[in-house]
Lab assay of single mutants.
Amino acid sequence: GCWSIEHVEQYLGTDELPKNDLITYLQKNADAAFLRHWKLTGTNKSIRKNRNCSQLIAAYKDFCEHGT
């Protein structure tokens, strides 16, 4: 299931919640338009490089609020 937004804000980028895991989750569960909008298409590695934690948190919040 979903992590809470508080959990993501607190732990994203740590061993508790690697950016990797959040990106994988969104790529698996969000639709193509969402991924394009948040620039989460492409390889996990390129996304990790190009999107910082606050951008990923914003995307995750949007996903939780509007889910697909």
Rank of each mutant, 00 (worst) to 15 (best):
K45S: 10
L12F: 02
Y11H: 13
K49A: 08
K39P: 00
R48T: 09
E6R: 08
N20L: 15
P18K: 05
K39D: 09
E16A: 12
E9I: 09
H37K: 13
C53V: 12
L26M: 12
D21E: 14
K28M: 09
T43A: 14
K19C: 05
I5L: 12
N29V: 09
S46Q: 12
W38E: 02
P18N: 07
P18H: 15
C53L: 08
E9C: 12
H37G: 08
T43L: 08
N29M: 08
A58M: 11
H66F: 10
A32W: 10
G67Q: 15
K28Y: 06
R48E: 09
E16H: 13
P18C: 14
A32K: 13
A30P: 00
L17G: 01
L17Q: 02
I23D: 02
K49E: 09
Q10F: 05
F34G: 00
G1E: 14
H7N: 10
L40M: 13
I47D: 07
P18E: 04
C64D: 03
Y25P: 01
E16F: 12
K39L: 07
C2S: 14
F34W: 15
N20H: 15
L35H: 03
R36T: 12
K28T: 12
T14L: 04
W3T: 02
L26D: 00
Y60G: 00
K19S: 05
L22V: 14
G1C: 14
C2R: 15
D62L: 03
W38C: 03
I57T: 07
Q27F: 05
K45E: 09
T68P: 15
I23H: 01
K19P: 06
A32Y: 10
L22W: 00
T41S: 11
P18T: 11
K49T: 08
D31W: 02
A58C: 09
C2I: 12
A33S: 13
G13Q: 02
Q27T: 13
E9A: 13
H37Q: 13
I23R: 01
R51Q: 09
N29E: 11
I57R: 10
T68N: 09
K39A: 09
T43C: 06
L35Q: 06
K61E: 05
I47V: 14
L56A: 01
E6L: 04
H37Y: 10
K39M: 06
K19D: 04
A58L: 12
I5D: 03
N50R: 15
I5V: 10
W3E: 03
K45R: 11
D31N: 10
K61V: 08
F34R: 02
L56I: 07
T14H: 06
A32R: 12
Q55D: 10
T14A: 05
K19A: 08
S46H: 08
T68S: 11
G13N: 04
D21H: 15
F34Q: 04
N52M: 05
L17S: 02
F63V: 01
L40I: 13
E16I: 12
Q27N: 03
A33N: 14
Y25F: 14
E16V: 14
R51E: 08
L56V: 04
K61W: 03
R51H: 15
L56T: 01
K49F: 04
A30T: 06
Q27W: 03
G42W: 04
C2L: 12
G42V: 06
L26R: 00
W3L: 06
L35M: 06
F63H: 05
G42Y: 05
C53Q: 06
N52L: 04
A33L: 09
D62M: 07
R36M: 11
A33C: 11
C2T: 15
G67R: 15
K45N: 04
K19I: 07
I57G: 04
D62Q: 12
I47C: 09
N44H: 08
D21S: 15
K28R: 12
Y11V: 08
A58H: 07
N52W: 02
H7K: 09
H37M: 11
Q55S: 13
N44F: 11
K49D: 10
G42D: 08
D62A: 13
L56G: 00
D62Y: 07
T68K: 15
R36Q: 13
Q27L: 10
T43S: 14
G13H: 02
K61T: 07
D21W: 09
Q55M: 09
N50C: 05
R51K: 14
Y25H: 10
I23C: 02
Q27Y: 03
I23F: 03
R51W: 08
I57M: 15
G1A: 07
S54M: 13
S54N: 09
R48S: 09
S54C: 11
Q27A: 06
K19V: 07
A30H: 02
K19G: 03
K45A: 09
E16P: 05
L12K: 00
A58G: 07
C53F: 04
R48H: 10
D21T: 15
Y60P: 01
H7M: 11
K39H: 09
I23N: 01
T24M: 11
Q55N: 06
A32H: 14
D15E: 12
P18F: 05
L56S: 01
F63G: 01
L22S: 01
K61H: 04
A30R: 00
A33W: 10
N20R: 15
H37C: 05
D31I: 01
L35S: 02
L56Q: 00
K49S: 07
V8F: 02
C2K: 15
N44E: 08
H7E: 07
Q55L: 06
K45Q: 08
A58E: 13
Q10Y: 06
Y60S: 01
C64R: 11
N20F: 08
L56M: 04
Q55W: 12
A30L: 00
N44A: 12
D15W: 09
L22N: 01
Y25D: 00
C64Q: 06
R36P: 00
